[in-house]
């Protein structure tokens, strides 16, 4: 397998203009993602996960280091790195349908064709019947489905997701996670997923990368060998799943077991 995304020695220092002080968010993070792989980045709050993902997206520039996608250096945002945000970020003035086909419209794909593609993804994420609704008419979970479909329909080289399910309730979250693993597998999407929930990372990924507390450094990189399709009812009792979860928990929190971390 070829590495489709390469992050070389990424460091990021923010300057706090109020405290007149440097904040080192990331320090020397290197990471390669193979095509069709599902990789999660986990770490404690404030360790620079979002910063890292934004740098990959081209929405932030690293203080040092570089990102290569399909061998090309990233210099700004682009359609090859579609991002799903925690706050959905759907355009309120576009319907589900026109939101989802927006990327295709930018590419100049004719209306009939892009509508067909959009409808395939609307069905894929279970939003049939809501094509003509505006985002404010959808529930939180439906909005996040639309946001995922919007990026998937645009067929990015890498799908970037920053805690996309943090704002929905636990039940909806588990359903969305199951759907995401199924879709990523069937569409063979390359995914870089950021979360602070260890169980979520293990459940979704083929590989989990753990960052230390700020400044973020890679402290663990573990392959997750669990069969797909994955379902919560089965995995919560699966000894291998539990072993992965405990291993990562020890990595991040020392030896203390964590409770109440939502999956």
């Amino acid at each position: 397998m070829t590495d489709i995304l390469v992050a070389k020695d990424i460091s990021k220092t923010y300057f706090d203009t109020v405290a007149k002080d440097d904040v080192v968010a990331l320090s020397g993070v290197s990471l390669s993602v193979a095509a069709h792989d599902f990789v999660s980045v986990i770490g404690p709050s404030g360790c620079g996960k979002s910063t890292f993902l934004r740098i990959v997206a081209g929405l932030d520039t690293p203080t040092s280091g570089e990102i290569l996608v399909s061998g090309k250096k990233v210099s700004g945002p682009g359609a090859d790195r579609g991002m799903v945000f925690q706050e959905y970020a759907l355009l309120p003035w576009k319907t589900t349908e026109t939101n989802i086909e927006f990327g295709l419209r930018l590419k100049g794909i004719p209306k009939d064709e892009r509508r067909k593609i959009a409808h395939r993804f609307i069905e894929l994420v279970g939003l049939k019947g809501f094509e003509k609704k505006y985002p404010h008419q959808l529930s939180g979970g439906m909005r996040q489905r639309a946001a995922v479909a919007r990026v998937l329909a645009n067929n990015p080289t890498v799908l970037l997701m920053d805690e996309p399910f943090a704002a929905v309730d636990a039940m909806t979250r588990q359903r969305l996670q199951e759907e995401l693993t199924a879709i990523a597998a069937s569409e063979r999407t390359t995914v870089l997923f950021v979360t602070h929930a260890i169980e979520e990372a293990v459940f979704l990924s083929n590989r989990v990368v753990a960052l230390s507390g700020r400044p973020g450094k890679v402290i663990a990189d573990i392959r997750i060998d669990l069969p797909r399709p994955r379902r919560w009812e089965e995995l919560v009792r699966d000894q291998r799943f539990i072993a992965y979860r405990d291993e990562l928990t020890r990595c991040i929190h020392g030896n203390a077991p964590v409770h109440g971390n939502h999956a």
């Binding site: 997206a57 081209g58 929405l59 700004g76 945002p77 682009g78 359609a79 790195r81 579609g82 991002m83 945000f85 706050e87 970020a89 759907l90 355009l91 927006f102 990327g103 930018l106 590419k107 946001a147 919007r150 990026v151 645009n154 990015p156 970037l160």
Partner: peptide
Amino acid sequence: VQPVLIEAVQTLGA
């Protein structure tokens, strides 16, 4: 204007 809306469409190629 919410920055995240601009960033979202930029990652769609805008």
